[in-house]
């Protein structure tokens, strides 16, 4: 087995492994429960739900 092939097998196992471990960890640590809180996690008191955060600049310069 050449060095390249060994690297490939290690890479393949690593990538598949991180995927599986990641999925298992996510399920265990509650990432898949309480989904409505998850969806709202990008909002906070400073930029709450219901507040738009982007618009075209106003035509007049102040």
């Amino acid at each position: 087995m050449t060095a390249g092939m060994i690297l490939l097998v290690v890479g393949l196992v690593f990538v598949t492994g991180t995927g599986l471990v990641g999925f298992y960890w996510a399920a265990k640590s509650g990432q898949f429960s309480n989904l409505s809180d998850g969806a709202a996690s990008i909002f906070d008191s400073e930029e709450p739900e219901g507040t738009p955060t982007d618009r075209f600049p106003s035509p007049k310069r102040s």
Binding site: I42, P52, D54
Partner: peptide, 10 residues
């Protein structure tokens, strides 16, 4: 984020 509404189905 722009419209200020969480994603429809997380």
């Amino acid at each position: 984020k722009v419209i200020g509404r969480p994603i429809h189905s997380y």
